[in-house]
Design a protein around this nucleic acid. Sequence first.
DNA 1: TAAAAAATGTTATAATATAACATATCAAAT
DNA 2: ATTTGATATGTTATATTATAACATTTTTTA
Lengths: 142, 142
Amino acid sequence: MALSAEKLTNNQQTVLDLLEKSKEPLKAYAILYDTQKKGIKAPLQVYRALDKLIEIGKVHKIESRNSYIACEHKNCNSSTSTSFLICETCDQVSELTQKNLPSYFAKQSEQADFKYAKHNLEIYGVCKDCSKSLVVGGKIDH
Amino acid sequence: MALSAEKLTNNQQTVLDLLEKSKEPLKAYAILYDTQKKGIKAPLQVYRALDKLIEIGKVHKIESRNSYIACEHKNCNSSTSTSFLICETCDQVSELTQKNLPSYFAKQSEQADFKYAKHNLEIYGVCKDCSKSLVVGGKIDH
DNA sequence: TAAAAAATGTTATAATATAACATATCAAAT
DNA sequence: ATTTGATATGTTATATTATAACATTTTTTA
C-alpha cells in the first residue's frame, strides 16, 4: 500500500489534527496535554503516533527545538529531508520548499567525498510579519 | 577581550580536550563519565562548560543527535551557523566548510520574505571510508 | 584592593524519550 | 468466515537529556 493512501488510526489522527490546527510547532508533552480529552493518556501514545506520522511524511520534527510540525505540503511523503525557516522573534516555523536543495547538497557533499542521502536544514532569522512590525513599532514586542 | 583570545577554565579545558581527542561526537553524559577522573562530578559542570565552548565557537552541538563535537577549524569563533556531514554507517561527523552557504541560504530565505540570520545544516549519508569498505567488503560491517 | 563579573559545587528536579510486556485490532489470504 | 501475521494500543516503569536554585569561590577590571 502506498504511504500516501495510508489510513490513520485514532491516535495518529488526533495528534495530526492538533498539529494541523496549531500555528506553531508543538512539543510532545504539549501534545499530550492537549489530547487528554481525546483519550491520549501517556507519552508513549504521543511518541508512537508522531513516529508514524513522521514516517509517512505528515509531520516533521524540528530537531533544535524538540518540537513537531504538520507538513504544509499536500500528500507529502518525504519523511527524509526537511528544511525550515524558524523565526527567532515569534517562533513561527515555515517550510522552505526548494526542490533543488537536495541536488545542491549532494554536490557540496561530493566535494568532501561524502555520499548525500538526506538532510535537515534549520534556518534562523526574522519572518516577514516580525520584520514588518519591527520597522513599524520601532522595537520587538515579546 | 576578543573571543578567540579567551582563556579557558579548568572544566572548560577538560571538556574541550576530551572532545578534541574523540573521533566521534560525544553526548553530555558520556563526557561526564569520561571526565570524572579530572574532577567533573555533575551534569551541570559539563553543560556549563559546553555552553561556554559553544558560545566561543570551539564546540558545536549536533542537534539531531544530542551530541557535541570540537570545531575542526583553527580559531573558529563562529558560534552561530553550523554544517555537518553525518555518516549513517559509522556515525562519524565532519564539518562542511563551505563559505558560500550563508549567502546561498540568505538568498533562498529572501524568496520567502525571511531575513536569514544563521543556520544549522545536518546532511546524512555515507562517508568516504564507509563508501569504500562497502564496495570492497560487499556489505556494511556494523 | 574593592567591586563586579564569571565560574564552581551541589542538590534537586524538569523535560524529553524509550523499554518491556500484555492485549487488542486490522488486513490479507486462505 | 477464520486463521495468521503485522501493526497498534494501553500501561507502568525507567532511561536520557537538560536546567533551576542557591551558596561559594575565583577571576577580572577599575
